[in-house]
Structure formats: C-alpha cells, structure tokens
Design a protein around this nucleic acid. Sequence first.
DNA 1: GATGAATGAGAGTTCATTCAT
DNA 2: CATGAATGAACTCTCATTCAT
Lengths: 194, 194, 194, 194
Amino acid sequence: MDRRARASQKRRRLAAAAARVLHQQGVERTTLADIAREADVPVGNVYYYFKTKDELVQAALAEHQAHLDELTDALDRLPTPRDRLRALVEAWVAQRDTAARHGCPTGTLAVELDKRADGTLDAEAGAVIRRLLDWTATQFRQWGLPDPDDHALTLVCAYQGMSLLTNALRDPAIMTREGERLLRWLDSLAPEGE
Amino acid sequence: MDRRARASQKRRRLAAAAARVLHQQGVERTTLADIAREADVPVGNVYYYFKTKDELVQAALAEHQAHLDELTDALDRLPTPRDRLRALVEAWVAQRDTAARHGCPTGTLAVELDKRADGTLDAEAGAVIRRLLDWTATQFRQWGLPDPDDHALTLVCAYQGMSLLTNALRDPAIMTREGERLLRWLDSLAPEGE
Amino acid sequence: MDRRARASQKRRRLAAAAARVLHQQGVERTTLADIAREADVPVGNVYYYFKTKDELVQAALAEHQAHLDELTDALDRLPTPRDRLRALVEAWVAQRDTAARHGCPTGTLAVELDKRADGTLDAEAGAVIRRLLDWTATQFRQWGLPDPDDHALTLVCAYQGMSLLTNALRDPAIMTREGERLLRWLDSLAPEGE
Amino acid sequence: MDRRARASQKRRRLAAAAARVLHQQGVERTTLADIAREADVPVGNVYYYFKTKDELVQAALAEHQAHLDELTDALDRLPTPRDRLRALVEAWVAQRDTAARHGCPTGTLAVELDKRADGTLDAEAGAVIRRLLDWTATQFRQWGLPDPDDHALTLVCAYQGMSLLTNALRDPAIMTREGERLLRWLDSLAPEGE
DNA sequence: GATGAATGAGAGTTCATTCAT
DNA sequence: CATGAATGAACTCTCATTCAT
C-alpha cells in the first residue's frame, strides 16, 4: 500500500473515530485529543486531514449517512416494501443497547448541533434525517398506501422518540416494546382496495 | 419584602433564566455569564445561590418540571381523560415554533446530559420525562384502556420524536401534521367493551 | 484605593507594558504571556481587561498617542513655532539610543500593522502619525510659512526616515547628524516678506 | 536543461516568491506554505533549497539587493551624478502605488527583522540599505559636493520616511509631493566654487 | 450577602521543521 | 531529488470557579 492509500485510510480512521466518540460523548464534551487518541493519530496531525473541529463533525455525519445508506441498500434487496420496513424496525430494535447508552447517533447529533447559532452543520444533520425520511416514504409509496409521506414521518418520529426515551430512561426495553408496536402497525396497513 | 424573600426571588430569577438560556443554547454552549446576564445578576453573585454550574442545570430541570406540573394541573380540570390527552397534544402543537427553533426543553436537555460520563444529572432529566409518562399512563388507565403504559409510551415517544424532527428540519408543520394524527388516534381509541 | 481604582490602574499597567514590549519585540513576536509578565499580571487575567490581543495593540497605540500628546502639550508652552519645532527635533534626537535599538514606536508599529490583510488597526497607527503631521503643520502655519502641510510632511518624513535608518544600521549618530541638519533647516526658514 | 540548472532555477523561483510574499505579508505573517504555493513548489521540497525559514528571508533580502544593483547599474549609465540621483528619485516615485500598499521592501523588512533578539538577519537588511547609502554618497562625491555622506543620508532618510508615511497613510500622493521636493532640492545643489 | 476582579487549567489551532518512501 | 505526511511545541482565547473587599 502506498503513501496516498495509507493517508486516505487514516482520514477514514479519523472520521470513524470521530463518529464513534462524538456519538458517545457529544460534540461539546469531545476534544480533538479524544478523537486523535481513539484513531491513534497525533493531535497535530489531525489538522492535516481536517482543518477544523467542525469538519470532523461533518465527517462523522457523513459516516452516519454512509452507515444508513449501507443499511437501506441491504434492505432494498428484500422483496416487498413491508419486508423492508419491518427489517428497518428490527434493525432499530437490535441497536437497543447502544441506544440506551448513547441514543440515536444522528438524532442526538442533530439536537446538539441545533443549539448552535451558526446553522451550517445542523442543516447537514437534518439532511441525514431527511434522507431516512425519503427512503421510508418511497417504501410506503411503492406499497401503494395513501399519504406515504405522512406514514414515513410517523415512523421516523417514532424511531427518534423511542431512541430518545430509551436513552433518557436508560431502558432498552422501551425499544423492544415500541418496536413491536410498530411491527404490528405495519402488519395492519393495507393498500386501498386490497 | 425582607431580605430572605428578595434572595429567594433572585434564586428563582436565576433558575428561570437558566431554563430559558439552556433551552436555547444548550448546556455546553451556555456560560454562567450568559445566565447571569439573562437574570440580570452579577456573575460573582450566582455562586451564593448555586454552588456549581450543574446546580443551575438542575434548577433549570426543576423549572421545566414545574411548567409541566402546571400544565397537567390545568389539564386535570378537564372532564374526561380523552379531553385531557387531546388538550395535551394541542398544547404541544401550540409550541411548534419554539420546538422548531430549540426542540423540547426537557428532551434536548436529556440528550445533552446523557452524553456525560457522570450519570447524576441525566437521571434527573429522565425523571422529568418519566413524570410525563406517568401522568399520561394515568389518563389512559382512567379511560379504561388496556395497556395504559404502552399507550403512554407511544404518545410520549411520538411527542419527543416529532419535536426532534421539527427541530432538526426546522419545520413547525411537522408538529401540526403529527399532532393531527395523534388527535385522530386518540379519537379512534375506545375502552374494551365500550 | 478601592477595587475599581486598582483595577483601572491594572488596565493602564497592561497598556503601558504592551506599549513597551510591542515596541521592543514587535507585534507578531510578542506573546500575551510576554505582556502579562511585564505587567506582572496572570495571563488569564489579561482577558478581563482586553478581550483580544488586538485590543492590547490598540491600547499600546493609544499609549503612544498619549505620550505624543504630552510632548506636544509641553512644546505648546514654548513662545514661537520655531522654538516648538526645534524642541521637537531635539526631543527626537534625545531618543536616539532607543531609536537605534527599536526604532520609532509608532512608525515600526505602523509598518507591522500594514502587513495585515485586515486594515483596522493599521488605520489607527496611521491616525497617530497623522496627528503628529497635523500638529507640525499647525506650527508652520502659525509661523506664517507658505505650504505648511508640505513642510510638515517633510519634517515627519525626515523623522521616520532617520529613525528607520538609525534602527536598521544600529547607529544613534545618524539621528544626531540628521537632527542637526533639520535644526539648521528650521533656522534657515523665514516667513514671506520677513 | 540539466538537473543542476533546473534545480537552481527552482531556487531562484523560491527566492523571488519569498521576496514578493514577504514584502506583501511581512515575515511573521508569511508561512512557508505561502511561499511554496507562490513559487509552485511542494512544501516538503523547499527544504532542499533552504534549510530554514530564515534562509528564505535571507534569499529575499539578496533578491532585493539584486534589484537595487540592477537599478544602480542602469543609473550608472546616465551622464552626470545629478542625472543619476534625479532618476533614482523618479524611480522611487514610480513605485508609489506599491509603496502605499506595502512600503519599501527593504525598509519594512529591516523594521521587522530589527524586532528580533537574534541580530543576524537584521544586519543583512542593514547592509542592503547601507549599499544604497554608499552608492548615493558616491554620486554626491563625484558631483563634487561637500559632505557627500550627509547628503546621501538625507536622501535615503527622505526615501524611507516618505515610503513609511505613504504606506501608513495609504496615500501615494505623499510620494509624489516629497519626490518633487527632492528633485527641486537636487536642482538647487551646486558644487563649491561652481 | 454582594460584587468586580482574579485565576489557571485546558481548548482549538497554527506552523516550522522533519521523516519515510 | 521529490514529496505528501507527520510531529509537537507554542499561541490565543475561554470559562468555571474562587477571592477579597
């Protein structure tokens, strides 16, 4: 592996470390030294890859976006929209322990970034959430249900809500209970005229 | 007004200012000077009322708790549990512009405090949310519905979820749409055997 | 002396220290710690009086302005414009050893500040020089000479030029030689029709 | 072109870039990356030509020296000392816009370098100025005027002074006014017994 | 109690210089 | 020779907390 490849790998390592540590400690309580340590990179070197702390936050958001895309790509291989949405909910529930400890990575990031006066980064956090919203709406639309956007909104709100409560009450069981309800809800839906 | 009364009034002013500013700027981006300024109290004086910044955060949480109690007390005067829950949802929707700008005060505070290693304050944030959960469950129980706890969980999750998305996407309309759905949902519920 | 008086005295001490150290070491090579040490003030405390390093530079400029004003006030007590201008030149020459080591405080500051992209502070440095220019022009005008502005420009240019060369060549004798020439020049001037 | 020639060409490009950028931004506000970029040379490569930043500053000084030598060589082709000195002043005035923006390259460099504790580089800056002084004195001597050194000092001081004021007040007209005065002064001079 | 001032431990960031290939 | 990457020391600035009156 040549120098350039190793360098870009380091960039990724930093982005991944940022995603992890920022999720656990939050943006404001995480120092660059924390991220550097997690990525095993000297502090001064971080600035070779990211000119500011904000760029690291941005990279972490991109990382979450990438994870989400991986997930939806995998789900897209399932036969029906209902299968895909069920699997989405199941993937959420599978993360319940992480959610109990640190909440939804994107959701909590969005909350923190929205506290800033400068609205640059929080718009990017919003974009990640909107992408999930769009993918979900697409599923409902393909399913042939009316008001697919409303259904998508309901589902994603439910996800963010249960993640927040799971985290705030430190109780993964919340995720299980609400997840099961969502599955029953999905099973109860039927396209018009079906 | 004697000295003690004036002092306790100052304490309240500080707590109220903390609640406001922390909601808007978040815990980590708010300095003691910010709160002191908002309360029109000299910085050095803050420490006679709150020994640490964390105590001010605690006071802000208590303030939110108090607001919530006021609200539920008012709702308790309504005739039926369904009326109360409907009014609760309507109260949420009425706050949509604030939610778009800063999210739910308690929810965003809980998110931020959960990022801390020290789990003292985030437990208190959880307690505020749990109190809302309990009050809501009580309504569903009085209504005679089965699984009142699950219903309560669903409703509060929906609230936190729609607040978060409203804030992240800076779109108060989300609150309106989800609020209307919740009202329809409440209208559709009926106790067993009714 | 009460707290407030002592505090404002500290502000002055800092401004004076800044003027001294910035003159000796230049803006860019002087750290806040240098100034703090010179003023015998803890580094963190500096920011109570000056929010940024630039404000300290500004304060140093004001200090130089004040020194200049003191000088011209003293000169204003002399009977004739020629006396005042002669005394001005003599005051410059008296500073020859300082000039050899560090140049003219205002002139060198202006040079450094003009290298900045942001033109805020260098305008203030220019203002100090312009004030000297104006005072000098006033003398020539009172003297009844034609083109008092041109004469003033010539005199101040000569001052800045000889300060620069004295400093660059580390030779106070330059100041003496040019100073004497300037005195002869002043003596040779006569108002029209005199 | 062989390797050695290409290499020495790169060295020159770097020296020229250094001269330009250091004049514009000053020594302390210029990074090696700035110079490397201006010369279109990779940062890491700079060190094959200049072991330290100071060596680049030195090279910039040499560049200014070379420019000055070019100028005086050209002037030396003029018939009389008076012609040469007049042409020198005219050359200065022709640079008035550059002077307004960045001052005299050598003069401002000397000011900055004199702020250093280490007196190595500022001596070199002084040497460049002294060379100008010497050339000028030679002209006055050839002219047959008494005190040629004093006349040279006066002329060079005037130049540095008017450059500094032009820069500090950002007014090229200063250069024009003082330049005209210097020309009149030169015209008024006559060797003894002439 | 009240208050302006003091303090010091970090935080993010920059950059000359060096290294490995 | 060339070069992207690495390094660490230093700097400016922030802020919770404490102190002296």
